[in-house]
Design a protein around this nucleic acid. Structure first.
Lengths: 142, 142
DNA sequence: ATGTGTGCAAATGCTTTGCAGTGCT
DNA sequence: AGCACTGCAAAGCATTTGCACACAT
């Protein structure tokens, strides 16, 4: 089921701004903030910054979009795939990739539940580093 | 080495606002935002909101304080201990506890490096759930 | 035809900056 | 005494809200 169907199934309309924002996100491999999205979309016919905010809220609520933090921990938005995923973000060019990794932290979760007596129900996990391209480009460091 | 020594070693002074903010953080088991800190400190002699911002920036830079996200992913500040630590945060009362856990994700990091060809250098990891008290208080759910 | 969605303008709220006075060291 | 630090007021931005018009359905 693609995003257009999800929209209409929830009673929302398929408007021009929504189409253009989704298309932009689909073609971008870094997380974008509201301002950046707005700026990128100034080309043909203008789209209001307010609509960007409202559209992002909606897409987030529908789970079509995910929050991804850049290397300075500022939030941005990316297209999300179904299921629980995490992201690895390049500290140099901000390119982000998904990886599935819930299983790998199960052991950790169990240990922490034992240690702290908390009941774990959710988590944030994100990796940062250098993408293949930036590893080549940048000078080596420790 | 305690925080007062760290301050002076870096050429910073031990002022009243800094003392009071550190003391508040030391006595709080949830992450606090600038506004909340300012509000909590209105009792005796007043302290400016601006000083709260500047002090937090400084403490963060010196590594005396860490950013911890609440269950809605809003950032707050907590006293940090030395070394790499993570937090588990109660979704109900926001109480947060540290746990040491870098080792546990090494395996995950290796797998992702292999999968993505990224070089991993840092990460964000935070768990959310219910603290022992809130588990008792709240009605059970799935 | 109907009511959701958009764009504009204004309001709101958090954070930063400038500057003169205060108080650590 | 000297200079970092504070507090106030104002500036700066990002985000939200209200409202009349536009356009999906």
């Amino acid at each position: 089921m693609d995003w257009k169907e999800i929209l209409s199934q929830h009673g929302y309309r398929l408007s021009e701004p929504r189409k253009r924002i989704m298309k932009l996100l689909a073609n971008t491999e870094t997380a974008l903030g509201p301002q950046q999205i707005h700026q990128q979309l100034q080309g043909s016919n203008k789209i209001g910054l307010v609509s960007v905010y409202r559209t992002l809220d909606l897409l987030l609520e529908l789970g079509l979009v995910t929050v991804v933090y850049d290397s300075q921990h500022n939030p941005g938005y990316m297209l999300g795939t179904i299921g629980h995923h995490h992201h690895i973000v390049c500290q140099n060019c901000s390119k982000a990739l998904e990886f599935s990794g819930s299983d790998d932290i199960n052991e950790l979760v169990l240990r922490v539940e034992k240690e702290t007596a908390f009941k774990v129900r959710d988590h944030i996990l994100q990796l940062f580093g250098l993408c293949p391209e930036c590893q080549k480009t940048l000078p080596q460091r420790a």
